[in-house]
Design a binder for these strands. Structure first.
Lengths: 238, 238
DNA sequence: TCATGGTTCAAACGTTCGTTTAAATCATAT
DNA sequence: ATATGATTTAAACGAACGTTTGAACCATGA
């Protein structure tokens, strides 16, 4: 009814509906007709505005990840400048990387918990175009944070740090995705859905100590490249 | 190529092909024609032998999870009998729960790494029938191991233990699923594909210390919200 | 030998998928 | 008011989906 509406909001309506439906049903499980139906726009609107379903998914992530990863880099720049050349503490690095992520969950204008859960689920989607897209979006930020962790933990082999970074991502993704297959059993996810914006704080308090504990765990000791005899159990690999 | 073949191996061929394809492309991303084509059987064979695509997926998991969860329960029975009423050490519990899982990765007749990766990915699939199926398959084993962890960590609130169990599952799933969206960046997954049966040992050495570190991390301190103190044995058994 | 019941087969079923088309509609500047 | 370019619309496209069908096949026991 005013001039702000002259700029059609069809694009945003589609992106919002797609974000929610991709989160609920996955990429392959969500059809164009579900999306355009929920967004109350014409079926052809997706192809007109975005070109294809794949391009739509990419745009759903791009509009959120642009902010997320720019913020992560900015925060790391600040922290490193503030440290004046000294290595950062691991807890500070993790707080910057994951705290920025969780902040999105508290802010509806950044996607809220809907986007967080979509992100957690999509990281394990097998489709090729998804994986290559994410690799490109995350390349710089992962490289910078990896380097920060290398400096923070000079006695830990780089490969081990990469693995633990990997494991922390997994634990966080899983915790965020929430509606995992076992939630009926474990039965402690309802809070995430009901608490709304506070969900991010709860998640942070729960998960960050776990991640730090894992990151600083004693290193595994390998026996050369052959098997080690130190194993206490009698299991013999055939 | 004699009487053992009289019992048609069509069922197993389908299950093997479906296991691999579901792992590579996900449930919705894998078509019946892809499965029957890879298995070199007629398109109608899936519906004849299993009834539907959903039932096929369930059977793919049932033939592996039956062994896995039976073994997990048996091992826990043994350990608890051996402990003569004393609580088990957390590391022993985790080794039983996750070691059994990783053992499947080393044994091709139990599914090998293919099934492990399929399992890791499917735990985050959003489809309803998948989630309810898993809930049923895992109910008993999760309940038993939860109880063991409660006894092993009497000073930790039950809710916190459940959360950390949850996080450990996530980290392990993510590590196993392997081909995550960031593998191009982190670049340390190739070993899992190339090492074959040894992949499980490598994974174990990498992941178990991380999980233990996370499980034993200092507890988060909340600003006095609903503080539910832990009544060790008065917890009602549902 | 033939009847039988389990299994395989090619073909088709109706539905839904992502995408495209061309006309209709809208907003804006001249 | 009219022309113009951007957007929306209804309808249809061919392809692929999961499933069903009915006949052909085949091992086995009478």
């Amino acid at each position: 009814m005013s001039e702000t509406k002259t700029q059609s909001d069809t694009r945003e309506r589609i992106l919002d509906a797609a974000e929610r439906l991709f989160m609920e049903s996955g990429y392959e499980g969500t059809s164009m007709r579900m999306i355009t139906g929920a967004a109350e726009v014409n079926l052809a609107a997706v192809n007109y505005h975005f070109g294809s379903k794949e391009a739509l998914l990419r745009e759903v992530f791009r509009r959120r990840l642009a902010w997320l990863n720019r913020e992560r880099l900015r925060l790391l720049d600040d922290l490193e400048a503030q440290a004046k050349g000294e290595p950062l503490k691991p807890s500070v690095i993790l707080e910057a990387f994951f705290g920025t992520l969780l902040q999105m969950g508290s802010d509806e204008s950044l996607g809220g918990m809907t986007f967080l859960r979509l992100l957690g689920r999509t990281l394990t989607e097998p489709a090729d175009f998804i994986r290559t897209f994410f690799a490109g979006e995350y390349a710089e930020v992962v490289e910078r944070y990896k380097r920060a962790l290398f400096r923070a933990l000079p006695d830990v082999p780089h490969e081990e740090i990469i693995w633990r970074f990997h494991l922390m991502l997994g634990a966080m993704s899983y915790a965020i995705a929430g509606t995992d297959a076992l939630q009926v059993v474990t039965g402690c996810e309802l809070d995430l859905n009901n608490e709304g914006p506070r969900a991010a704080e709860l998640l942070s308090a729960r998960v960050m100590p776990f991640l730090l504990g894992g990151l600083r765990a004693p290193l595994p000791q390998f026996a050369a490249s052959q098997e080690q005899q130190n194993k206490t159990e009698s299991h013999k690999a055939a």
